[in-house]
Design a protein around this nucleic acid. Structure first.
Lengths: 337, 337
DNA sequence: ACGTTTGACGGAAACGTTTCCGTAAATAAT
DNA sequence: ATTATTTACGGAAACGTTTCCGTCAAACGT
């Protein structure tokens, strides 16, 4: 069907090896021949077969991105950054969505051990609570870089933001705005980000000598209505929180809906701050105070780091932790009254 | 390094062909042998090399998704739907982002002609104004399905929503809410969706005998600040519009920002309706009246249609146009005063 | 003038599957 | 008892590259 290197060579009266080298701009081939080959390749619209090439050279020119969600502003932006770098490098991007399921994550990772991708960018699922599949990945020498949701027990590079500091800043911001009972909306105890952010939360409470209260830690899930119920219950008690720190965007949104339904006034009765990459935070009613991560940049840096490994396999043992800064943007949802 | 079928065969004292067939559950192999093979494969953690398989069988088990943006609620949801179907089918998903550049689109498409993907799902870039690259794709017999942003001049299946009707409904909704001068925010004259939506807009104007006014068609671009300036200028004149129909979400958001800056009250002074998949439309200030596309379902249907082609190549000439319904959700931004 | 290097190219193996042909033994048909 | 069929498997070609070895003429050094 399609023209391959053999046909191309026949048309040129050259050997296959010569044509291959000419196309690769090898020093062994004369300039005149190279030009002739390139012209004929163009004329016949020759497209090298990537599977043959990948098989022979044992590289796929492809990276895999494993993420919990794609319909999520943070991850969408991160993909954007990743894809930008990949395009620059002439690489292809495979995407795998775990939907927060560990089972899917394990399956994906196991299927990536066969050479389909030259490297993996990963943000862990909320369910993931053991890391054998990742150990296998590293064991096979496949470059792996985490971003945002990392795994400390695996020796691997990771791009994150200053989650602890940001958690501290968010909580302090609420306290300074007058909050005395601050709830923390957690996504999963398994997640590095959740724990770091909670550490920051606790640290701020300590600084301002506010006692911890386990009832103020709300363990949310991936289930929207369950989350709303949980939040609703927490806001339904007499001694209800007057501040909420949401560790991820969707929990803040859930809170907004709950408040609307329960007729709780933000920020008068309840102040909210959330990690979020929502582009319309400032257009919400009230506008939402956010800690915004440089999502695009995280994606970019993660991809760049991955390519450092791919380009120089000997660096595979290096394990660099890059921490970017998130920014707290105060808005209406935490305004003092 | 990794164990291949040859090693596996050696361990089993079987021939390569037998092992291959056993793994494929071929009828030619005895049940006992199949079990033995499967167990050894598991034990040795055998992972078949996808490049070798793809090369030999001339299929990649991969589909490509070419879209203008990923940090966009509609496309993120569509990818979600696509990825769901692909996972079910055991396929891998490559993603390519054109950033609305025709040049990128052409490059991607040309690079997909070599067998890297078994099919292509595509939503055209705003810049794309000729379709030679797509003709080439079809010429090579590579299955191609459009979604949302289609191309009528190419014989190909397409999943869209009822853009004309929705455009009509949106405009009628504004008219009934009292709007007399309605601006249409266009993304690109090249886009099928923009034109269909505009047709609906014109049809509604006609029905209510509102004269067309070219000055009310605002040709926006991919440049946020340019858009805001354009919208700002349109709202700065004496006879300014009192209704806006945004053909895509980001233009509605731009309008919100402009109104905030110019202190224009929505919906009192200006009513807005927009195509949008923003999950927090109802939390905006004021809440945004949207025409919401079933983005996830569009992605799903597009993928399903693509697999129909991939599974039965003889159907490649069939060209099915599936039209799903969008829904107008009236909210604060078009409330009558 | 003779061996040696260099430049430019060709032949063929190799990558790991899949699949087209066999084929030997076992069973069935006559 | 002989032939035909089935069952279960093996050998080897093929997919399209890349790359390891040549090789042969021309240029070079002495």
């Amino acid at each position: 069907m399609s023209v391959n290197i053999t046909k191309l060579a026949e048309h040129l009266n050259l050997s296959i090896s010569t044509v291959s080298r000419a196309l690769k701009d090898s020093f062994e081939i004369s300039e005149a021949t190279k030009i002739r080959v390139r012209e004929m390749a163009l004329k016949l619209d020759y497209q090298p077969n990537p599977h043959a090439s990948s098989l022979r050279r044992n590289v796929s020119k492809t990276i895999a991105v494993v993420i919990p969600e794609v319909a999520n502003n943070f991850f969408a932006l991160a993909i954007d950054g990743i894809e930008y770098v990949a395009q620059e490098k002439g690489y292809h991007v495979l995407i795998y969505i775990t939907h927060e399921k560990m089972q899917k994550e394990v399956t994906f990772v196991n299927h990536l051990l066969n050479g389909r991708a030259d490297g993996v960018l990963m943000s862990l699922s909320a369910e993931t609570d053991n890391y054998n599949h990742l150990t296998d990945l590293k064991g096979k020498g496949l470059p792996l870089v985490f971003f945002d949701r990392t795994c400390d027990s695996i020796e691997s590079s990771a791009i994150t933001t200053d989650d602890l500091d940001s958690g501290f800043a968010a909580t302090e911001h609420l306290i300074r705005a007058g909050c005395t009972r601050i709830a923390y909306l957690d996504l999963s105890r398994n997640l590095s980000i959740s724990n770091k952010r909670m550490e920051g939360y606790y640290k701020a409470l300590e600084k301002y000598q506010i006692p911890r209260d386990e009832k103020l830690i709300l363990e949310c899930t991936n289930n929207v209505s369950a989350n709303e119920e949980l939040i609703g219950n927490a806001l339904g008690v007499s001694e209800r929180p007057n501040g909420i720190f949401a560790s991820v965007e969707k929990l803040a949104i859930a809170t907004y809906y709950v408040c609307e339904r329960m007729n709780i006034k933000i920020p008068q009765e309840l102040k909210i701050v959330s990690f979020s990459n929502l582009e319309v935070s400032s257009l919400l009613s009230p506008s939402l105070t956010t800690i915004t991560q440089p999502a695009y940049e995280i994606g970019k840096q993660a991809a760049l780091q991955l390519f450092r490994y791919i380009d120089k396999k000997d660096l595979a043992h290096v394990c660099e932790k890059i921490v970017l800064k998130s920014t707290l943007i105060p808005r209406g949802s935490t305004k003092k009254h």
